[in-house]
Design a protein around this nucleic acid. Structure first.
Lengths: 158, 158
DNA sequence: AAGGAATATGTATAAATATACAATATGAGA
DNA sequence: TCTCATATTGTATATTTATACATATTCCTT
């Protein structure tokens, strides 16, 4: 039952990576990865993840992530981050360093992303502890931040 | 049978304006506006319009126009684009779908933008192939269209 | 105007998806 | 630990949506 989070992440990855056109297909893919659940559960998962189903010229219909992430790098103006200094990963968590006094405002912005990946944040004066959900990888987090935080990316992102 | 175009436009207006959560509901609304058709037809219309269905915290599920177009009833009159349906990208080019018969007029408008980004267009009856210059990205093109074509726009799903 | 291809639609039904309900599991207190 | 509240899931089924097939309509082309 602790699988849930991992399953949710796996679903996101699958939907983002390949073109899934039905819950049955999704179920097959997940089972191939060792997950086991019924169509009903997937229906609930997709609702939880706010995954949309849209017509596609190739496959008829495909599922799509809606809270854009890992998407078009061309737009995204979401959150103007100022004061960001660096990010490191340890103990499965991300530690962001900021200019003195800037931590809470950035953490606030992070919270407001309302993204699945981030379970929560704790901000000090110049440091933010970003706690990812179980199953969220460093790469997932980096992608999230890259796409939602202009001024992030580049070499600071170790 | 020439109702179709009007119906397609009405559908977009409805979906854009209110939160429709099923084809049955859509059918009711349309009938209230004097249209008459079955659920099957709506299913086909929604596919044609590339309308996505996504989870919504209030209504459970709602239909949404996908990544573009949205007729702001309030303003913008510059170059009124009517009949625009959707845009897709493939082979480095953009494929725009329009209502039947509207392609050439929209293509004409596109040509008249005299923008650097667009090398040329080829219009069929309800499809326009937009050929970008080398090096022009999908994002560049989207930006161009967003700013120069009222009635175009992107938001929603994606 | 007639014939034929292409398009649009309805009907009936298949396919896909959502959910009520019951069962099970998990977590927080007492 | 025990108990209650909450969360997760499966089963069975209802609801919703897509589509095969037949029919009707439109558009050419002659």
């Amino acid at each position: 039952m602790r699988d849930r989070n991992e399953r949710l992440m796996a679903i996101r990855r699958l939907i983002n990576g390949s073109n899934i056109s039905s819950q049955e297909e999704l179920q097959d893919q997940l089972e191939r990865q060792g997950f086991s659940m019924t169509q009903a559960t997937l229906s609930r998962d997709l609702k939880y993840l706010k995954v949309a189903k849209m017509p596609d010229s190739e496959k008829g219909y495909i599922y799509m992530l809606t809270e854009r992430q890992l998407n078009d790098p061309s737009e995204n103006e979401d959150i103007p981050i100022t004061g960001f200094v660096s990010i490191d990963y340890a103990q499965g968590m991300a530690i962001m360093k900021t200019l003195p006094g800037h931590a809470s405002s950035i953490a606030y912005a992070l919270d407001n992303l309302n993204s699945y990946e981030i379970a929560g944040t704790i901000a000090g004066d110049d440091t933010i502890l970003v706690i990812p959900r179980d199953g969220v990888t460093k790469g997932d987090l980096t992608n999230l931040l890259k796409t939602k935080m202009p001024g992030f990316r580049r070499e600071e992102v170790h």
